[in-house]
Amino acid sequence: MIALLVRDLRLGMRAGGGFGLGLAFFLIVAVLVPLGVGPEGQTLAKIAPGILWVAALLACLLSLDRIFALDFEDGSLDLLATAPMPLEGVVTMKALAHWITTGLALTLASPVLALLMNLPGAGYGWLVASLAVGTPALSVIGTFGAALTVGLKRGGLLLSLLVLPLYVPTLIFGAEVVRRGAEGQAVLTPLLLLGGITAGAAALLPFASAAALRINLR
């Protein structure tokens, strides 16, 4: 299982792997929003938590269709399905690799972008914390969507349509943590709920993802 994780990470880092694209997208959104909204620090500070979370979510979405599509095209997925590891393990490792190359990178880069968005000082820690706790759920849910649409022509657009409604709870609690943190209110409740969603999704969704993969491979 570790071998699969290492291979996926290596593929992500090498040329054409798409690592960094999500980060660049995250950066571009953080630049475009002030250009559209106007430079007033007050306004930006108010919308910063929501914009940063929506941007992170969209950046995650960008690379979802690559999770299984490449392995499906070159036949690796068939071979992995006959390998001595359960498909549930395969999808978990795939989600983990996706999170490390996108979610974790976004989490680490987020304070810089928060600076551009004029996030109040108290919010920085909670921004990083909420992304660290919430983005794994985005990867796991996205892996489920990718498993549903693997092998479909023009699956990418459909994937977004399927996954975005599933992202609603994560987005709400994640942005709420940052908003409350920035305003100096108690953040424990939304942070725990966010963690609950991540834990629940990570525990249960791999079974659904593996089932969807099996259906798609037959």
Partner: peptide
């Protein structure tokens, strides 16, 4: 006990 080899080789181009 089975090893399956399909039409596609399951190779990664950059490796």
């Amino acid at each position: 006990s089975m090893a399956y080899a399909a039409h596609a080789d399951g190779l990664k181009a950059v490796l």
